[in-house]
Design a protein around this nucleic acid. Structure first.
Length: 263
DNA sequence: AAGTCCGCGGACCGTCTAGT
DNA sequence: ACTAGACGGTCCGCGGACTT
């Protein structure tokens, strides 16, 4: 087949798919259909919200996380009414930002504090939903739990040396070039394999390791500055900023929230 | 398919400063 | 003691092109 013919066929197939999708459009955005599908995923939180950030559709994983018996108890409420006040306000602000700007946020590494006080790492995606006039009518989002790494993967052994290095030396400056050298991989290979096996970029993995250590230290009485230094930040403001970005709260607020959960 | 290289845009960091 | 904003420099992530 000539390259011209191949191109023509591929163009034809794209047009066919687009037309078939058009026919399915109403079924695909049917909230009940989507809800049923996402109910099957126990490690993925799914929701659709209106312009005010109120839940219109939730899946079962979200219901469980929030500690409700029925999904209907969540409907019509915003994050503010569902999560601890400080975190709820952050999530709601994030929702309203997506709606206001009409821009998606994707692959955001977040530390969630669940109803039972347990911490969990997630990758969050939120997209604005448009009506037939292309106006933002709400938003849809998923928050996916980070899975255990695939230890059977052939490159896992090499990466495990990198992981061990990060977990041992997270308090020191870590450069991708050095991590790549440890694993005998190029920087590009390291990035790709980390993404594939851990679902995180090397940078995200380092941040996750540092902030995990930080949350443990915040359960004690050490100052924020001390904790920042102990977790590889040369400046406490850089630590606070990053902590706030990932967790949604300033370190001191997190400490306050953790203690109120424990009592 | 996997690996390498490169350029660009943006994220991140450190520093300084001001405010609470 | 801590948070937050501004700013400049550095580094990272990503996509594309090319090679093995």
């Amino acid at each position: 087949m000539s390259s011209f013919q191949t191109e023509a066929r591929s163009r034809q197939s794209v047009e066919w798919v687009m037309s078939a999708r058009q026919q399915l459009a109403h079924a695909l955005i049917d909230p009940f259909f989507v809800e049923v599908l996402f109910d099957q995923l126990s490690d993925v939180v799914f929701f659709i919200k209106d312009l005010h950030g109120r839940y219109l559709v939730v899946n079962d994983a979200l219901r469980r996380r929030c500690g409700y018996k029925q999904k209907s108890e969540l409907l019509g409420r915003s994050s503010l009414e569902v999560f601890p006040a400080e975190l709820g306000a952050i999530y709601l602000a994030q929702d309203l930002e997506v709606i206001r700007q009409g821009r998606a946020i994707s692959n955001r590494l977040e530390l969630h504090l669940y109803n039972d006080g347990v911490r969990g790492w997630c990758l969050t995606h939120k997209i604005p939903l448009l009506d037939q006039h292309s106006q933002v009518a709400g938003l849809a989002g998923i928050s996916r739990d980070l899975r255990m790494p695939d230890e059977a993967h052939p490159v896992y052994q090499r990466l495990s040396e990198v992981v061990a290095h990060i977990q041992r030396f997270y308090a020191q400056p870590l450069r991708l070039e050095d991590l790549a050298a440890i694993s005998h991989l190029s920087v590009s290979q390291l990035e790709r394999h980390m993404q594939r096996i851990f679902e995180l970029t090397p940078k995200q993995f380092i941040i996750k390791t540092r902030l995990e250590a930080a949350t443990r230290l915040l359960e004690g009485d050490a100052s924020i500055t001390t904790i920042a230094h102990a977790c590889g930040y040369t400046d406490h403001s850089a630590f606070s900023r990053q902590f706030r970005q990932v967790v949604g709260l300033a370190p001191a607020k997190y400490r306050e929230l953790f203690r109120s959960h424990r009592t």
